[in-house]
């Protein structure tokens, strides 16, 4: 029982409360070139937790960084950078390294993790990225599947100064260490984490070296 890429995308759309374009499909595998760029359309009103992208302006590249007002407070606030125009994006594996790129809000991280667990996915890694120019912290969850070799990237953005994401270590115990590492390096809090102490840094470390404003 290995889900196809389309089935995974549909499952995501149900969890996130967005609807996909009718009749679209995608083939899993490294050479899914024909499907790159297919995006889902989103509903604007029905979802209880609107994803940030639904209200986001068209994305611009991170390097420009022009559309960012400073001092954002809410997690759902629009940010520039690399947020796609739609929460569910198929990408070509050969171009980026994954098949499905899903952007969610911080609370939805738990739902997507449960979905991934249900579909038999495995947590590959948790990455934090400090977008200092946009005053945002991005947490990227990489999932992979042993049988179908589909790779899914789930990403969320939270405000930089109050970066908090729910922990998924209850669902994937392997996330425990990844989240501890992300916390110590970037200062992103993982709410509900059983032991958010430094893992690789000294146990009394209070600094977060991967923050862009970190001065050694």
């Amino acid at each position: 029982m290995t889900p196809t890429l389309t089935e995974i995308a549909k499952a995501f759309s149900r969890v996130l409360g967005v609807t996909l374009e009718p009749g679209f499909s995608a083939e899993p595998g490294g050479g899914a070139s024909a499907n790159s760029g297919i995006t889902a359309t989103t509903t604007s009103s029905s979802s209880s937790a609107p994803s940030p992208a639904t209200t986001a302006p068209p994305a611009t590249q991170a390097s420009t960084g022009t559309a960012v007002p400073a001092g954002l407070t809410t997690p759902a606030a629009p940010t520039a950078g690399m947020i796609p125009s739609s929460p569910i994006v198929f990408t070509e594996h050969a171009s980026r390294g994954w098949h499905l790129d899903v952007t969610v809000t911080a609370p939805q991280v738990l739902d997507t993790a449960r979905l991934m667990d249900r579909l038999g996915f495995c947590l590959d890694m948790v990455t934090g990225v400090d977008w200092m120019a946009q005053q945002a912290m991005e947490v990227v969850y990489d999932y992979l599947h042993f049988d179908s070799s589909v790779r899914v990237v789930v990403r969320t953005r939270v405000p930089r100064e109050a970066a908090e994401v729910p922990t998924i270590s209850e669902i994937f115990p392997g996330a425990n260490w990844h989240e501890r590492e992300t916390h110590e390096f970037l200062g992103i809090r993982f709410a509900g984490h059983p032991n958010l102490t430094p893992l690789l840094l000294p146990e009394d470390a209070t600094f977060h070296p991967l923050r862009k404003d970190f001065v050694a």
């Binding site: 980026r96 590959d124 990489d142 992979l144």
Partner: peptide
Amino acid sequence: AGDYCFAVEAARGRFVVRVVSEGKDIPY
């Protein structure tokens, strides 16, 4: 600019590098 992953099978297992580029001469 963009983020890119590459996975290889190292001797100990799956090794993934994710690079986030801003189009500059150093990785973001």
